[in-house]
Design a protein around this nucleic acid. Sequence first.
DNA 1: ATAAACCTGACTAAAATAGTCAAGTATCTA
DNA 2: TAGATACTTGACTATTTTAGTCAGGTTTAT
Lengths: 141, 141
Amino acid sequence: MKLTSKGRYAVMALVDLARFNNINPVSLRDISLRQGISLDYLEQIFSKLRKKELVQSVRGTQGGYILNKKAKEIKLTNIFDAVDEKVKTVQCKKDSKKGCTGKATKCLTHNLWDELENHINNFFKEKSLEDLVKDNSERRV
Amino acid sequence: MKLTSKGRYAVMALVDLARFNNINPVSLRDISLRQGISLDYLEQIFSKLRKKELVQSVRGTQGGYILNKKAKEIKLTNIFDAVDEKVKTVQCKKDSKKGCTGKATKCLTHNLWDELENHINNFFKEKSLEDLVKDNSERRV
DNA sequence: ATAAACCTGACTAAAATAGTCAAGTATCTA
DNA sequence: TAGATACTTGACTATTTTAGTCAGGTTTAT
Ligand code: FES
Ligand code: FES
């Protein structure tokens, strides 16, 4: 099980944005340089974040992105959802009547993976962007 | 983040093995048929499980595999470890002095991913094969 | 002897990931 | 108003990982 770069970058970028998000928009170029993430890739990511209304764009010179909600209200789960980083543990189609081996019943481990999925998602539901920013500035003191 | 088939199959196979593991060894062929997993693939998986001494092999006709420990003592974490299904959330090399973007410091989110990794691994450390077998037979009543 | 079953290593097709590239559009500033 | 900055979009591609397959063994009960 591993976390993909897309998900990791999305969170990194938003933490960066949240820290520098005083009044002026933050350009992707700046985030790219600070975090070492390809600008083109960031653009793909932010396009999705914008569609889910986590950020707002400001076009033109001196433009960039600003948070569209309070950092406290943006949970990790929202971020991951926006960039399609989903937790997938079961093999069967989630709602199908058939188990993962095509049989009518669920396989021996279906319940286990469901539990696991919930366990992981709970973590994402609890953590907010604010937590991350705080966490980080504390460590700098 | 998703669970790979290798990890899922390893657990499925061991649960199956644990259920039928009375006195006689269980052949991979039987597991393959019951669980719908390719025999060749199962062989790869059991080779690893054997090397980590989770199972014992019995060669020859009427052979197969038996558990090498009590089901209670085999945790999910042991199984995943055996088949190299590791949880990997950080991008940087775990012990390197450099962060994931090559800088000297850890990136803004390193701690978060570490927490996540622990969170997931805790789940694996708690669950034993016995839990899974019980869980399953209860549901059959 | 022979068949059942374990054992091993090499190989490969398909999918997912992590980007790149190209061609725009909008807006600020000089 | 020209030019620069920065967002916008969609298509394309190289790399890596996954999920197996395949071919050839060896061991042992009957
Ligand atoms: S994981 Fe759902 S039936 Fe196997
Ligand atoms: S994940 Fe370790 S430094 Fe970025």
